[in-house]
């Protein structure tokens, strides 16, 4: 199981600024390990962000995203205490869901 995401959701006026860092190798299938063998693809493909029970962002990602990906989003109309749920799923079918509340 991958490590938890770090999620921060801060309210500024009526806009929630959401920052998330995911713990993932994002292997692009081109890197070689110390033995010279190619490290296979292993990267996040899908990301979803829900705020207050509504889907606000759906993302797809490829291997050109850095390892341990960081994303920032802004959501208008959010309120303090709204639940923020972020999920990712990678090409091996592994997934992770973490949440926080808008503060």
């Amino acid at each position: 199981m991958a490590d938890p995401m770090k999620i921060r959701a801060k309210l500024s006026g009526d806009v929630a600024e959401i920052k998330v860092m995911m713990s993932h190798p994002m292997e692009n299938g081109m890197r070689k390990d110390s033995a010279g063998a190619t490290v296979p693809h292993h990267f996040i493909q899908n990301i979803t962000v829900e705020v207050g029970g509504k889907m606000v962002v759906q993302g797809q990602t490829g291997t050109s995203v850095s390892r341990n990906p960081v994303f920032g989003f802004k959501v208008k109309g959010a309120k303090a205490g709204d639940k923020v749920v972020i999920k990712w799923r990678d090409n091996k079918g592994e997934s992770r869901s973490d949440e926080t509340t808008v503060a």
Binding site: K54, V57, Q58, Q60, F73, K76
Partner: peptide
Amino acid sequence: TSFDFANGALPEVQVRVR
């Protein structure tokens, strides 16, 4: 990356790329 926005999400994104 490719992101779709709805339900109040502003059309802006920060990301770190290779």
